[in-house]
Structure formats: structure tokens, C-alpha cells
Amino acid sequence: MAENTTITQSKETKDLLILLAQTQKKCGFLSEETLANLARTLDMSLSDVYGVATFYSFLSTKPLGRHVIRVCKSLPCHYKDAAVIIESLEKTLGIKTGETTPDGRFSLELTNCIGACDKAPAILINDDVHGDLTVDRIPQILQAYK
């Protein structure tokens, strides 16, 4: 029987959010051209498509690095010195939060609680959680993302 329906959604889905997420995964971000194409295919207005694309924080209408680092800034992490982690990441990568390294390897963003508060301070790199972070561990963690 339909074995992998839980993993792969049907190819011809008309669900805009799924399509946006798939496109972002493939292209790294959602360009104006992509959005216009999607609008045409789905017979929707560009502004509706744009409205969805900009509503969700994991979708991006500007280019992102190959790896996206999201640092949790919510209270439990904040009080476990998330600011020190942010500062250290900015220094190591040579960029500010909201920016992408010139080589396109990393984007650095802040985010709200990622549900790892028992391991605060915590960050997400792509889909991976790194918790109980210390400044010393950062270089080694980053090395795994080429």
C-alpha cells in the first residue's frame, strides 16, 4: 500500500505552504520569480502567495546561506547567557545576526523558543538542535557544516 505517504506528500499537491517549503528546500529561498511562477501555476494572486511566504519565519524571500543558524532568544535561553553565544557566533562568523557570510556558508538568525529549554542555551542549525552550548564548543560544532 501507499507506503511513504507520511514522508513524501503527493507530488501534485496544490497546498501552497507545502509547495513553498519544498521550493525553499530546493532553491534555498523564495525569489520573486519563484513566487510569480507559483502564483501562475496555482491561479492565485501574487500578493496572496507573497502573503503566505512572508508570514512564516522559516520561509525566506531573501537568499540564505547553505546552513541556517537560529539562536534561541526566549527567556530560559536568554537567562542562560544566550547573548554570549550570539556574540561569539557573530565574532566567529564575522557577521551580524540577520546576515549571511560572504562565502554563502552560514546565515545567522535569532528565533523564539525551540523547545529545548531543558538544554538552554540552545540553537538550531538547519534541523539539528545543539543544546547546553558553551562558547568553547562553537568552532567544533560549526566544522560539521561545510
Binding site: T6, A21, F55, Y56, S57, F58, L59
Partner: peptide
């Protein structure tokens, strides 16, 4: 019945 997982996209 069938069960499908749907992913959110970052919105509390």
C-alpha cells in the same frame, strides 16, 4: 484511517 504529518513553518 490514514495519518499524515504536516510541518509548520515557524509561527507560534
Amino acid at each position: 484511517m490514514d495519518i499524515e504529518i504536516r510541518m509548520g513553518a515557524g509561527a507560534y
